[in-house]
Design a protein around this nucleic acid. Structure first.
Lengths: 340, 340
DNA sequence: CTGTTAGCGCGTTCAC
DNA sequence: GTGAACGCGCTAACAG
């Protein structure tokens, strides 16, 4: 039988109220001597208050929920680690859940709420579902991660996907590439749509017409990029491929290794995220570095600000990315006629 | 104000007990008509029972705790994903925590327990601390992951690290390598000690003396292997390096790229884990594949078996690994005198 | 078939 | 300074 506050009270020959005051460091006076005695008994018995019971009264669980579409993706891992560290430092615990469909998403949010989480972080997915979620989530502290800021009253954090994609694409163009194929991710992701816009804008800047035929989709995994890579390389005349994340760029590397194509001699490749393995590849991958860990830490901080109501909660936050120029893009400016 | 069971009872003009029976699908009869009426009200109000309150009575939270020394390591991620999927299918939620010290470990276990987790999975670390943990954990369903089976009464799961390391080392020896350096992980990990034993056994089998001078340590991260790699390559005459995980093997690749050494021509490299990036490297890494996802799923299943008390809980589980022979190990049997 | 009565373990008014 | 009593939202006997 676990020891409860009653047991302690009985042993100390006081009421539970007094014990409660002591273990909560309640300023209301409790005689110093009595206090020490109770503390001693608490130590000896190893008594730990039942946090469930406490939560029922305080309406705080010191637990927050985190929903992610993919906890295995390296980029998200750093985000999750950032969240974990920030939360842990603040005395919070994290309920983590990998959801792969809109239905699961909603269901998990509901059980998290029913379990009394103090707040929820929703990671990049199901932009559409966010409308219905908004209903369930009224009054609950929420941070949206990697959604485009469309709901003004909800805290949101992300990076400037559009600007970064534009910068990267421009870099490709400066290196002489005019036929740039894309392997995009699932278009439910706001980030995918944003990166696409950035790509299009860069093309527009350079006066290059947009060609939907060289825009293919993967699911953000390495293997999902194999077939698009094959099609782009064998059926079109693109000189560069922009993958909307690093993992899919790895897929292009994999395909090239299988069929003997050389990067960047035969085809240039660029990614997005800059996960740690990208610089290890041969050649190292040119990509956009997203500050995953910081994004996570900031998300958690934003959520905690809402929960504690301390300080003015910052509702919008956009972190900036860095273009990482490495060896997977070839400068083809001086190889004869550059045909647009 | 959130609607409670009382509200529903009032609206349906019944007692809370009746409502409780209905929402719990209690076999005890409730009139069909009444039942439907209550269900209708529940639907209309969007009522969701407060799971905290329920847990106080049932002593079940349907939440399990997971402690990991490093949620960013790719290998662990697959394990975590396996756990997540199994738990989710069974209607459980996961409290995740990344702990980096024995103190944090203990503290987190205690708060998880105080929050009423139904069980806990402890991942590979702090073998020493497990003694003190055993006290706190009496009576609580626990699964130890990647610990060597030293506590008979506690459920444990892992792979045969020793046998796999031995097999890999033998493979190196068969390829003519007699001076095989190691970059080991932190020796608090049971897995590290096991892999070391396997390495030593393979040496012994082949009559090669064990040389502690070529045994260095990293912390399982890529960059931690840089310096050991440099020392092994420049200060010793090893022809192969066995890294105790893939991430550190990447460190050797990184070092070699920096100083122009070629793999496997100048130095052979082998790893452990077989995370997805290893086959993408140039050359692809020879390593031992551990079934991360399955390990995770099995861990969760073992925990659930204890919690539900259904079936005879399997207390020990050892999954087997697979040697993945790829391009990072050179056969040097026929290159002149092989000097032992 | 359904309602009444007790708590689960704790924090929080109030009195004293 | 301290204790008694109440209630958080819910389930589990036990009546009827």
């Amino acid at each position: 039988m676990k020891t409860t506050i009653k047991d302690i009270a009985k042993m100390a020959k006081v009421s539970t109220a007094t014990v409660s005051r002591v273990i909560n460091n309640n300023p209301e006076g409790v005689g110093q001597e009595l206090r020490n005695n109770i503390l001693k008994i608490v130590r000896e018995t190893g008594y730990k208050p039942n946090l469930l019971a406490r939560s029922m009264i305080t309406n705080k669980t010191h637990t927050i929920g985190l929903l992610s579409p993919d906890i295995v993706t390296p980029f998200y891992q750093y985000v999750i680690k950032g969240i974990n560290d920030c939360l842990q430092a603040a005395g919070y615990t994290m309920l983590l859940c990998n959801v792969e469909s809109g239905a699961a998403y909603r269901e998990q949010v509901e059980t998290m709420l029913a379990k009394g989480t103090d707040g929820i972080i929703l990671m990049g997915f199901f932009g559409e579902t966010s409308q219905t979620l908004a209903e369930i989530l009224t009054g609950v502290p929420v941070v949206l991660f990697d959604y485009v800021p469309r709901l003004e009253q909800i805290a949101q954090i992300n990076t400037n996907n559009r600007a970064s994609a534009r910068e990267l694409t421009s870099h490709l163009i400066e290196n002489g590439h005019r036929r740039i194929g894309c392997i995009m991710g699932p278009e439910q992701f706001d980030t995918v749509r944003e990166r696409l816009k950035g790509y299009q804008k860069a093309l527009e800047d350079a006066g290059i017409p947009y060609n939907p035929k060289i825009m293919l989709n993967g699911d953000f995994s390495t293997d999902s990029a194999l077939e698009p890579a094959a099609r782009l390389i064998t059926e079109t005349d693109v000189s560069a491929i922009f993958c909307f994340n690093d993992l899919m760029a790895y897929g292009v590397y994999k395909y090239c290794a299988q069929c003997g194509k050389r990067i960047p001699e035969d085809i240039s490749v660029a990614g997005f995220d800059d996960i740690p393995y990208s610089e290890l590849l041969n050649p190292p991958l040119t990509t956009v570095r997203q500050p995953g860990y910081r994004l996570g830490a900031e998300s958690a901080k934003m959520l905690l600000e809402q929960i504690n109501g301390t300080a003015e909660p910052r509702m919008k936050r956009i972190l900036s990315n860095t273009l990482m120029i490495r060896g997977s893009v070839k400068n083809i400016n001086n190889r004869g006629s550059v045909n647009g």
